[in-house]
Design a protein around this nucleic acid. Structure first.
Lengths: 414, 414
DNA sequence: CATGGTTTGTTTGAGCCACGGACGAAGTAG
DNA sequence: CTACTTCGTCCGTGGCTCAAACAAACCATG
């Protein structure tokens, strides 16, 4: 019986576990540096030079790291510089949104090597959606021939709460997907480990590792779309709550005298600044803006954003309203959790300052509390935040040695 | 240079750290059992019998554990049963509220060995408050003579956000306390380590270890008083946010069209169900309840609760209103964090079901989400939850080997 | 250009911790 | 009384890290 089969195994450390964590520390340090010598690694991590040598030897063997050039002398022998081989391992990230499917091939530095996307109404057709995703994955992974053996696995971001460790979505949100096992299907087709999570959680992971929330112990990623969902990083780890349903920001009550929501509350964020109510607001306010550019028959978030960027008053009013209302919700979140950073994602964020300005103004009115005034709210720099995050899901599983190890080189030989 | 002085020390484990964590696991298991043998410890923890023997030897030496009776035979030699010595270490917990100071002597099982309390307006008189607290501590610790050498330290719960690792309170909430160093003053007087935290955070710690949130990885303790504050336990650890200000539930916006709050928002929880607005509600609604028992000249939470328990309609209306409004705020928190349990504290909770009933009803209206329907909200069973929690603060520091160790027996000899 | 001092990276022996197996002690069942 | 089981302890082994010694590579200097 190995230690991992035993009770308390989650808490109990053995020599293996500590050795593993040490390898991670060293790898992480190389990752964070452009190039670094063994001696500097020893100084930076506190390990002895002999230990560093042993660990680096393994990393070289696994192909994760290479010796490149030699550094400048500090008065003695010149150091051998080590660098991360960014594409020695790659991950596939899949984003399944309400109205589209995207897929990206991502390397260890979060660089997108391939990317494909397609509009598709996924809500009621899970099987077709998975087929589309599989085709995309095949395109990303098989075309550049030698990539396959370096593939760590596939991550999937789903537009609903996901039970941890599975791909079961909350039936309340996606009834048609009940019983559909995305993980099992994709694992059967591609024979690599597959992981799934909520889209906002995935986005949070990506932003924390490669994006606007790097170095933040406490942060949130808020995805503004049909519904408003949040992913939290608390204490340096993704937080998903007791059953994995944390982040349902969309059902925060903003105005108890507002319109009713399916959840039983009135004036939820979803029924105020979700996509449908925002588009409705365009229609309702249309009459006050006679010379608007918006075509009410072909209304979409994309056209709304475009109009706002072109200076349309109605579009700016609606986007600004969304911003200031989101500000109230974010103020509540910051008061509760005292986060360092909030990253916004979703199509409407492409309106940039037209959204962020009113949002900030709304926050500044409440800036008395340092929990609010000393945190920063930014828009994700990456249009593919969720895709990247889904890929990150795989990487983090590998780094935590869940089902795969980034260190094992078994398949790399091929 | 020891490992702990080095960079990365937070993440890097050495043999010492793993040994320490193993001792904690074994101690914890004995703690959780009435009485347990070495053989059962080995089975429960997964360690070998030899390792258990070594660790138990240390625990015996530290006086934390004793061999008591012998257990029943399972077909062979009868086991020697080990038990925790509950009062081998004791802690003092101090609660400083807006209108009172309390102090308790607490043992390892969370039993209150001594308890004193006194009404006092602490807000504007920090120095007198500390003097009162010091007198109470002296009474608790010195009277029962042999206790002093077993005292691990003193914990203080303060009615404002506290910067982590210090006793600095947020000047915004307690201006008169700015620059007052409670930790330094009490350490100078008693020569034991002193720790401070926000009252709600302290309460959360106590409830998680000894109270209604035992075994919960994700929970909240909500203190309903002049202001409404929350302490969170997320992922098995207290969560205090980026600067230590997490938990400001009182400034959650409940009704954007409600009365204004100092924070800049309208309809904050504080201005709706804090003590002052609740007492105001009694006065405003008085005329509709001609035969109320409430004396408007001597209105207090205590008298409100008493009247509600005695069947007074006005009091029940006000308490019920508080409950259903708290329900909205708690629904928001549960949607965000998907907690397993919420524990309520503060004097008004003594109204029991008169508060909890409407609160639950308010939650049940939103029970569509499993994040809400599968969590439980309870009232703290302990009137001294914050005092106990403050004592717990010391214990947890000792268990984490911050400044003190529960294992060291240096002072115990005396 | 040889020499000494420095820095880098590797090798080697020792220490710490947990484990497994052997052993005596202390029971039970027949 | 004997065979068998369980409990707790003792001792040798193995895994991992460290410190010290060592070899390689480089700079400065006379």
């Amino acid at each position: 019986m190995s230690r991992s089969d035993r009770p308390y195994s989650g808490d109990v450390l053995d020599a293996q576990a500590i050795r593993f964590s040490h390898r991670s520390v060293v790898l992480r340090k190389i990752w964070d540096s452009e190039a670094i010598s063994r001696a500097d690694l020893a100084r930076a991590t506190g390990f002895s030079r002999s230990t560093i040598s042993a660990i680096v030897g393994e990393l070289l063997g696994a192909g994760l790291v290479v010796e490149t050039r030699r550094g400048a002398s500090r008065g003695g022998r010149r150091p051998i510089l080590l660098e991360l081989v960014s594409d020695s391992r790659v991950m596939v990230g899949v984003e399944i949104g309400g109205g589209h499917v995207s897929c990206a091939l991502v390397d260890l530095r979060g660089r997108v090597l391939e990317h494909v996307s397609q509009d598709f109404d996924t809500r009621d057709r899970p099987q077709e959606t998975i087929d589309i995703a599989a085709t995309m994955i095949r395109r990303c992974v098989l075309e550049p021939a030698p990539i396959r053996p370096r593939l760590l696995g596939i991550g999937v971001g789903l537009p609903a709460p996901v039970a941890p460790g599975t791909s079961e979505t909350l039936a309340l949100v996606l009834p048609a997907w009940e019983g559909v096992d995305v993980i099992q299907q994709l694992e059967a087709r591609f024979r690599v480990p597959v992981f799934a999570d909520n889209d906002a959680n995935a986005g949070m992971r990506g932003e924390a590792r490669w994006g606007a929330a790097q170095g933040c112990e406490h942060a949130a990623f808020i995805k503004v779309a049909t519904g408003i969902g949040a992913g939290f990083r608390l204490g340096g780890q993704l937080f998903s709550g007791h059953q994995g349903f944390a982040g349902e920001l969309g059902h925060m009550s903003i105005d108890t005298s507002g319109p009713p929501c399916v959840c039983g509350l009135n004036g939820c964020l979803n029924v105020v600044v979700g996509t449908p109510p925002l588009l409705d607001r365009c229609r309702i306010r249309r009459s006050r803006y006679p010379d608007t550019l918006l075509d009410l028959d072909k209304l979409s978030v994309a056209s709304l954003v475009q109009a706002a960027l072109q200076g349309d008053s109605l579009a700016r009013e609606v986007v600004g309203y969304a911003g200031s209302t989101l500000g109230i919700a974010i103020a509540n979140v910051l008061n509760l959790l005292n986060l360092e950073r909030v990253v916004l994602g979703g199509r409407i964020t492409r309106a940039g300052d037209h959204l962020l300005g009113p949002l900030q103004a709304s926050l500044n009115e409440r800036a008395l509390s340092p929990a609010i005034s000393e945190s920063t709210v930014v828009i994700s720099e990456n249009d593919q935040a969720v895709c990247l995050g889904a890929a990150c899901l795989v990487l983090e599983a590998a780094l935590a040695e869940q089902r795969i190890s980034i260190f094992s080189k078994e398949d790399m030989a091929a």
